[in-house]
Amino acid sequence: MKKAIVKWSSVVVIGSLLAACQDTADEDTELEEEAATEDEEATEEEDHDHDHDHESEEKGDAEIEGFIDHYHTGDTVELTVTTEEDEGDGQWHWYVRGGDEGEWESADGGDGDTFEAEAVDHQQIKATLYDDDHEVISETEPVTVIIDDHDSDVYEGYFDDEDVEDRDISDWAGEWKSVYPYFEEGDLEEVFEHRAEESDDMSFEDYKEYYETGYATSVDNIEITEDGEFTFHDGDETYSGTYVYDGYEILEYEAGNRGVRYIFELEEGDDEAPQNIQFSDHIIAPQPSSHFHLYWGDDRDELLDEVDHWPTYYPVEWSSDQIVDDLLLH
């Protein structure tokens, strides 16, 4: 009888041990599954956070809108991203980095398809659309913020000859509009008032007459490609020409400062296309232009003598308020 009791007790103990082991195994399995789930979620989150470190193979057609060629210190960059891709339940994420070689980081100013933050010079910004699996649906090309406060000696026309460099037509590539229609509408009078307040010898009317002579033109829009093709929209007429670089000239002004004209010569084009085009934009080395004064005609040397008539062009997407703000800084 004792043997039976001992035997039965042994069975009970062994069974209890097996049950305990099974419970421990189950707990271990649950812990392993939870850990695996956490690792998977962490991996997905990490993948999401770091997808911006590489370029997606198919970026789609996402575009950033609201970006302008240059900003001033203290300006706010306000952007919107658009795409024709099916966004579904995707989420937009904005990233910034300090120049071409920096690491992409999540941007504080991003909120869905909009971005708003203070301008930082040479900062790049892009937006990426992710789906629920953190796969890239679409991504924009980066845009680079340029701050230009127009307060340098070069802008004022004080520089050394050795600082002047050749420039490529790509510095002026884009779609441009004349400021003269804004003059005619009266949108620039704040600028003339500001000039008169700071001047000891010119009145509001003096400045208005001065700028009317300078800005006057019938060419309201100009398109320039990186291949050197210019298209002029002159009233109801449109004519084009392809131009090649013909060097630069440094000009001495009566006021004691100087300027640089970058010159392009007609290679081929319509009969109406001028033989020579000269840019002046207060820049003396390779750099994209934010606005420029343009001189055109058939006589190169005669154009170099022209200092009273300088039709002025800004990016076509700029508003009148942006143009006025820029002119007030000159």
Score class of each variant (00 low, 15 high):
residue 309 H to P: 01
residue 190 E to N: 07
residue 174 G to Q: 05
residue 167 R to T: 15
residue 319 S to C: 05
residue 279 F to G: 04
residue 263 I to N: 10
residue 44 E to M: 13
residue 181 P to R: 12
residue 103 E to M: 03
residue 215 Y to F: 15
residue 232 F to Q: 02
residue 10 S to R: 12
residue 163 D to K: 02
residue 91 Q to S: 13
residue 220 D to I: 04
residue 45 E to M: 08
residue 31 L to P: 00
residue 84 E to F: 00
residue 76 T to I: 09
residue 224 I to L: 08
residue 75 D to N: 15
residue 261 R to L: 12
residue 187 D to C: 01
residue 90 G to T: 10
residue 191 V to N: 11
residue 236 D to C: 01
residue 158 Y to N: 04
residue 16 S to E: 05
residue 237 E to N: 06
residue 193 E to T: 05
residue 74 G to A: 01
residue 32 E to S: 07
residue 151 D to K: 11
residue 280 S to G: 12
residue 59 K to W: 07
residue 271 D to F: 10
residue 6 V to Y: 11
residue 6 V to I: 12
residue 296 W to E: 14
residue 127 A to G: 05
residue 163 D to M: 10
residue 158 Y to M: 09
residue 177 K to R: 11
residue 314 Y to S: 02
residue 138 S to C: 05
residue 119 A to I: 02
residue 231 T to V: 07
residue 153 D to I: 01
residue 192 F to N: 11
residue 189 E to S: 12
residue 303 L to C: 03
residue 68 I to F: 02
residue 97 R to M: 09
residue 24 T to N: 09
residue 295 Y to N: 14
residue 197 E to R: 00
residue 181 P to T: 04
residue 13 V to F: 13
residue 161 D to E: 15
residue 110 G to Y: 01
residue 5 I to N: 08
residue 80 T to H: 07
residue 222 I to S: 00
residue 178 S to N: 03
residue 172 W to I: 05
residue 111 D to Q: 13
residue 230 F to V: 08
residue 153 D to G: 03
residue 79 L to M: 05
residue 235 G to E: 12
residue 306 E to F: 02
residue 282 H to A: 11
residue 174 G to M: 06
residue 149 D to S: 11
residue 218 S to A: 08
residue 221 N to Q: 15
residue 41 E to H: 05
residue 259 G to H: 13
residue 256 G to M: 07
residue 56 S to Y: 03
residue 161 D to G: 02
residue 48 H to A: 15
residue 187 D to W: 00
residue 103 E to D: 14
residue 175 E to W: 01
residue 100 D to P: 11
residue 299 D to A: 00
residue 273 A to I: 03
residue 187 D to A: 14
residue 202 M to F: 14
residue 223 E to C: 00
residue 311 P to Q: 02
residue 3 K to W: 12
residue 40 E to H: 11
residue 224 I to W: 07
residue 112 G to C: 10
residue 72 H to C: 02
residue 324 V to W: 05
residue 290 S to H: 07
residue 157 G to S: 06
residue 41 E to W: 14
residue 123 Q to N: 14
residue 138 S to Q: 02
residue 10 S to I: 07
residue 228 G to I: 04
residue 130 Y to E: 13
residue 204 F to D: 08
residue 252 E to G: 05
residue 11 V to N: 06
residue 160 D to G: 13
residue 159 F to R: 01
residue 37 T to V: 09
residue 87 E to F: 12
residue 31 L to Q: 08
residue 63 E to P: 03
residue 97 R to S: 01
residue 308 D to G: 05
residue 224 I to G: 05
residue 208 K to D: 11
residue 182 Y to I: 04
residue 258 R to F: 04
residue 209 E to Y: 07
residue 99 G to T: 08
residue 101 E to D: 15
residue 188 L to I: 01
residue 140 T to G: 04
residue 191 V to K: 13
residue 78 E to Y: 14
residue 96 V to R: 04
residue 252 E to Y: 05
residue 87 E to T: 15
residue 13 V to D: 04
residue 146 I to E: 11
residue 286 P to L: 02
residue 16 S to M: 15
residue 19 A to Q: 09
residue 250 I to A: 03
residue 40 E to I: 10
residue 137 I to L: 04
residue 157 G to V: 04
